[in-house]
Amino acid sequence: MSALSRIREFRIRRIENFRAVLLKAWSVRLIVLATLLEGAQAGCGFFTGSDLVSPGTLTVLNCGLMLAALAARLVAQEAVSGSTVKGDA
């Protein structure tokens, strides 16, 4: 199968327990927090005309939150997906 045919077959499908993932997954919580932090950074600069915290500090915090969200996506979260770790019965 060629790479082009694999790309054509690629379809985004919703997961069955998307509501549980949205409400309980740490990755989603961290992404929301990073988004709020990014909005606060833009809003403070826009409305006050000055930066309360340096943009570099907020950027580093935002990058850290996004890396934590990536790591959280790779960890089995029992509250979201049940017992999915290999070896659990």
Rank of each mutant, 00 (worst) to 15 (best):
M1H: 10
M1F: 13
M1E: 15
S2F: 04
L4S: 08
S5G: 12
S5W: 11
S5I: 15
R6L: 10
E9M: 05
F10N: 05
R11Y: 07
R11P: 00
I12Y: 02
R14D: 04
I15N: 07
E16R: 12
E16W: 05
E16Q: 07
N17F: 12
N17A: 12
R19Q: 10
A20S: 15
V21I: 08
L22F: 14
L22K: 09
L23P: 03
K24A: 10
K24H: 12
A25T: 00
A25I: 00
A25R: 00
W26N: 15
W26E: 15
S27W: 01
S27P: 06
L30C: 05
L30A: 00
V32F: 14
T35M: 09
L36P: 01
E38L: 00
E38P: 02
G39H: 15
Q41I: 06
Q41W: 01
A42M: 05
A42H: 04
G43P: 05
C44N: 11
F46L: 13
F46P: 05
F46Q: 11
F47Q: 06
T48E: 08
T48G: 09
S50P: 01
L52V: 08
S54L: 06
S54Y: 04
P55I: 02
P55W: 01
P55D: 08
G56Y: 10
T57A: 03
L58I: 02
V60K: 09
L61C: 11
N62W: 04
G64D: 09
M66V: 03
L67R: 08
A68T: 01
L70K: 02
A72M: 13
V75P: 06
V75W: 11
Q77E: 15
Q77S: 09
E78G: 11
A79M: 07
V80H: 04
V80T: 15
S81T: 12
S81W: 13
S83H: 10
T84E: 11
V85C: 10
K86Y: 15
G87S: 07
G87E: 05
D88Y: 14
D88T: 10
A89K: 08
